[in-house]
Every structure is written in C-alpha cells, then in structure tokens.
C-alpha cells in the first residue's frame, strides 16, 4: 500500500519536474512547478514527516509560488510567443553544476548504505521535536537566519518605499 502511494507520488513528482523544464509557456511551467511542490509535500506526508509536508504546502506551494505566478501571469502574450529557441548558452553554463551534483549523489550512494536508512519515521509529535531541536541544538544558526531575513525585509521595505 505504502509502496503504491510512494511510486505514484514519485512518478508524479518526476513527471512534473520534467514538464516544468520542457514546456515553453511560462505559465504552464509554473503550473508544473506547483504540481511538483504538491507532489513533494505528498511524499513527505507518506513518509510521516507531517510538519515538513505542511510547511512545504504553506511556504512553497502558497507563499512563494504565488509571487512567481503574480509576476509571470502579467507577462504579455506577445513576449511569450516571441521566444522559439533552446536555451543553449544557459545549458552550457549549467552543465558543470549538473555533473558535479550527479557525482556527489553517486558518491553519497556509494558511501552510505541507503537500504539501512528507515524509510518511514515513526514519530508522532513532529512539531514538538522540530521545535525543541531548532531552539536548543540549532539555536545559533536559527537566530542568524532570522536576522538575515529581518535585514532582507528591511531592505525590501527601503527599496519599495515611496520617494518623498
């Protein structure tokens, strides 16, 4: 049962990621991206990581993608249709990163025995666990991250401020 769910979700995830890359229309692309985010949330759910799944939904599927959608849907149709080529230059730039990440993943698979990692984590109270870990063991990085976010927010407000 769990295997069926997992296979369904991962096929959905892979298909939507591929779709996000190959479709031409940016709005279709963002839809595929949204679908991949939802599929990821589903994978997290099926693995028992409920909090991550919920955050995935709220933060990625809603907060971030909405901004993408807001920007992309306002692109005029003519500009969407004008582009007909392949992103060759971008592909060449990205190629080294793809190779490096493939090598890293291969190394990881070689070094650790994946089958020994428990597939499903039997934790009932995700929220408490995550909260405790964040505020004790990872307190300093957490605070640094929040300060960075605060600075970014102030910067955004400064940029968006009306000129007097």
């Amino acid at each position: 049962m769990e295997l069926i769910v997992f296979i369904f979700l991962s096929v959905w995830l892979v298909l939507s990621v591929v779709g996000a890359i190959i479709v031409k229309n940016p709005v279709h692309s963002i839809l595929f991206f949204l679908s991949s985010v939802l599929a990821t949330a589903g994978v997290f759910f099926s693995l028992g990581a409920e909090l991550i799944a919920g955050l995935q939904l709220i933060i990625y599927a809603v907060a971030i993608v909405v901004f993408y959608v807001l920007v992309i849907t306002t692109i005029p149709w003519e500009k969407i249709k004008k582009f007909e080529g392949i992103y060759l230059g971008e592909f060449l730039v990205g190629l080294p990163f793809i190779i490096i990440s493939v090598i890293f993943i291969a190394l990881l698979i070689n070094k650790y025995d994946i089958s020994s990692i428990p597939v499903k984590v039997e934790i009932t109270d995700n929220v408490t666990r995550v909260g405790k870990t964040l505020f004790t063991y990872y307190l300093f990085p957490f605070e640094v991250a929040s300060v960075i976010l605060l600075i970014a927010m102030i910067g955004a407000i400064l940029l968006g401020r009306k000129e007097e």
Binding site: E50, G54, L57, I58, V66, V69
Partner: peptide, 19 residues
C-alpha cells in the same frame, strides 16, 4: 497532527483556482 497547517495551506491554495 498538523490539521491547522493543512487548513491554512488549502485555504490559500484555492487562490490558484482564482488566478
């Protein structure tokens, strides 16, 4: 366990229908 998070997520995913 995260019932409320689901509610908020679904309440706002509905925005995609609109957009």
């Amino acid at each position: 366990n995260i019932g409320l998070l689901i509610v908020f997520a679904m309440g706002s995913i509905a925005v995609y229908g609109t957009i």
